[in-house]
Computed example of a mutant assay.
Amino acid sequence: MKRLTLADTAAAIVSLLILTAAAWIATYGPETPIPVHFDAAGQANRYGSRYELAATLAGLAALNLLVAWMTGRQAATVADPVRRKGLRSGQWLSIIIMGAVAVFIGWASLGPAAASGVSHPGGSMAFLAFILLITGATLGRVSPNPFIGVKTPWTYKSRLAWDRSNRLAGRLMFWLGAVGLIASPFIVQPAGLIGLIAAVLIAAVWSGFESWRVWRTDPDRQPF
């Protein structure tokens, strides 16, 4: 039987907190419609009930447990300590992101936007930049897994392609996150948020291309 680690325990606690928040919202949340989706300018363009928000958070809690459990189980079966450490890094990254996303969803629907129907894009940009910063600082150390990282056909066929493409993606995301956090209070919105999203898409394409380039020249690659 797999022994529970600190990361496993943290995943359970974070999921329990999210589920508790979901239960509270379903029981005591606003009975009037609340904003559940926003356009790029921060204007609410869809409203839902407290039960929809609670169900979204409950699903996020379940997803957090699933990803953490499967990643932790994979780490427990790996003999290589370096790869095991990399899988644990991925597990922690997943927990942090899931927890942060849950907080952001709750704040976006129940915070100031609940009354005004407007969420400032600068806050969304700052949140996205924070996620990029945390992801970028960790991604280069994450070992191959089914959930987190640059997952292309070539990274599954070459460990070198996985390592190099994820290191590149990590560096790009880290610096995009750092610049985004600094710029979010000052840059004109929603241009800043849209620009950051576009930069993330470019970084993703670049990292995917890097995985193909490295796989093509890797003498130890697996053929298709």
Rank of each mutant, 00 (worst) to 15 (best):
L132D: 03
F174W: 09
A199M: 00
G136P: 11
G208W: 06
V200I: 15
M125F: 08
H120V: 04
F147N: 07
A113N: 14
G208H: 12
V118F: 10
H120N: 13
A169Q: 05
G123M: 01
L110T: 02
V205F: 05
G123K: 00
A183E: 00
W162C: 08
I134Q: 07
I202F: 11
S124G: 15
V205A: 10
A137C: 03
T152R: 04
N166F: 02
A178P: 08
K157V: 05
L168D: 00
P153V: 05
L160K: 15
I197K: 07
A126P: 10
A114K: 14
P121A: 14
A137L: 04
M173C: 12
S211W: 02
S158K: 08
S109C: 09
A108I: 08
A129S: 15
L201T: 11
P144K: 15
P153E: 03
Y156K: 13
S124N: 13
E210W: 02
F130M: 12
A137P: 01
L181I: 14
I197S: 11
V179G: 07
R164D: 02
S207G: 05
T135H: 03
W206Y: 12
S109I: 01
G208L: 09
G170A: 07
A115W: 08
R167E: 04
P112V: 13
A203H: 03
K157W: 11
M125A: 15
G208Q: 10
A113C: 15
T138G: 01
V188R: 14
N145I: 08
S158T: 09
I202S: 08
V205G: 07
V200M: 13
P185R: 08
P144Y: 09
A204K: 06
W212F: 15
K157Q: 14
P146W: 07
N166K: 04
F127W: 12
I134V: 15
A115H: 12
G140F: 01
W154H: 11
L133F: 14
G111C: 13
G123W: 03
P146I: 01
G195L: 01
L172I: 02
R167Q: 12
W107P: 10
N166R: 06
L160N: 14
L172Y: 02
L196G: 03
V188W: 09
F209P: 00
A198N: 02
V142L: 07
G192E: 00
A178Q: 08
L132G: 06
S158Y: 03
W162M: 09
G136V: 06
W175P: 11
Y156P: 07
A115F: 11
W212Q: 11
A108P: 10
D163K: 10
G122S: 15
G111D: 09
K157S: 13
F209E: 01
I134D: 04
S119L: 14
K151T: 00
A178E: 03
L160M: 15
W107I: 14
L196V: 04
A191D: 04
G177C: 05
S184T: 06
V142R: 10
P121H: 13
W212A: 13
L201I: 14
V118A: 05
V142Q: 06
G177Q: 03
A198K: 04
F174G: 10
A129E: 07
R171T: 12
A108V: 08
L196C: 03
L201Y: 09
A191E: 09
I148Y: 05
A198S: 05
A161N: 02
L160Q: 15
G149M: 00
G177Y: 02
L172T: 01
G123H: 06
A126R: 07
G123Y: 02
T152V: 08
P112M: 15
